[in-house]
């Protein structure tokens, strides 16, 4: 690997990092704006035209707020919590294939930071790590509400990770690969995995809602019961990091869903348009982002529609419904592969 390749990788990492931050920033704006539209309101419209500068104002506010560290909290862990949350949220996007290849001069640039052959497992690992930020933060706050939120987050993530993993196993039986790049490439044309794994996708998206702590599974932070849940004691940018990591998580899980089930960067008729390879790649990136935005929209749409689950209902759904369903999905997929192929 030459210096140029390393520089290109660095540039790619930087670009993806910036894109995830900007998208997370504007997700907060989109969330408020969409919430307003769903409720026949206007939404933020003071900062700039249509309130387009609202995220900047929010960010500035977060930075300028007083930073409070409770006396009885464990100081180090109190800071580690949000750092871990935002870090794990950011590294998830490393294995997502954003597009095919760009050829600039003699350099062939893969639009993927790294193609590890266990990409799916990597994402799972990162997602599992994500709960540590919430748990450590909640525990370090030394506050009963935070602790309850943290416990809820931990048990919820563990419960739903099982169902998520099982739904992925069925997908892996179809694709035969753990590399996200290969999974995306296999879905060329209309062979999107959603066609082969509709039930698996349903389970996956429900678990994704639970993993990102979004309504209807936002029990770790439910304002009405736990004040703010795990981030009750947090203020200033540390709170900002927690909120931010939620949106980055949402972006990454949208990207993962688009890649695993909705063809990634593939779009219909991509090779019958008669365009050069570079243009097809760029259009593919745009197609992927359209899919991601559609998923983010769906996340928000659901948030402003469905009320929160009760805790026992959440556990019921996870253990008694989704896990058996996911196992049934594996069996059905196995039967199909054995007898029909």
């Amino acid at each position: 690997m030459g210096t140029a390749d390393i520089l290109i990788k660095f540039a790619l990492i930087l670009i993806i990092f910036l894109i995830s931050l900007v998208i997370a920033m504007y997700s907060t704006y989109a969330e408020r704006k969409l919430a307003a539209f769903f409720q026949d309101r206007v939404g933020p419209n003071r900062a700039g035209p249509f309130g387009i500068l609202q995220p900047l104002a929010d960010g500035a506010k977060m930075f300028l707020k007083e930073e409070i560290i409770p006396t009885n909290s464990s100081g180090f862990l109190f800071i580690v919590g949000p750092s871990l949350a935002i870090m794990t949220a950011c590294i998830g996007s490393a294995v997502i294939p954003w597009g095919q290849q760009l050829t600039i001069g003699s350099h062939v640039i893969d639009l993927q930071v790294t193609d590890i052959n266990v990409g799916v497992l990597y994402i799972f690992g990162v997602v599992s790590l994500g709960v540590y930020g919430v748990m450590i933060g909640g525990w370090a706050s030394n506050n009963k509400y935070s602790l309850l939120g943290a416990i809820r987050a931990a048990s919820q993530n563990i419960s739903y990770e099982i169902a998520m993993g099982l739904s992925i196993i069925a997908l892996l039986m179809v694709t035969g690969s753990l590399s996200l790049k290969e999974i995306a490439a296999q879905q060329h044309g209309w062979h999107w995995n959603i066609v082969y794994q509709p039930l698996g996708f349903l389970i996956f998206i429900i678990c994704a809602f639970a993993e990102t702590n979004r309504t209807p599974f936002d029990l770790p932070e439910c304002e009405t019961e736990l004040v703010g849940g795990y981030h009750t004691e947090y203020s200033s940018m540390k709170l900002g990091f927690y909120l931010f990591s939620e949106y980055i998580n949402m972006f990454v899980s949208s990207a993962v869903m688009a890649t695993l089930y909705f063809g990634g960067y593939n779009f219909p008729f991509m090779h019958s348009l008669g365009l050069s390879a570079n243009w097809v790649t760029i259009l593919g990136v745009i197609a992927l982002f359209i899919k991601i935005f559609a998923f983010i929209f769906f996340f928000m749409w659901v948030r402003w529609t469905i009320p929160r689950f009760r805790y026992d209902q959440l556990m019921d759904l996870g253990w008694k419904t989704l896990i058996p369903l996911a196992i049934a999905n594996i069996v059905i997929t196995g039967l199909f592969i054995t007898f029909l192929k």
Binding site: L34, A36, F37, F38, Q39, D40, R41, V42, W301, T305
Partner: peptide
């Protein structure tokens, strides 16, 4: 229902 509000209902603000 929420989509109906998103698309068709005018805001009352």
């Amino acid at each position: 229902i929420t989509m109906k509000h998103f698309l068709f209902k005018k805001d009352v603000t």
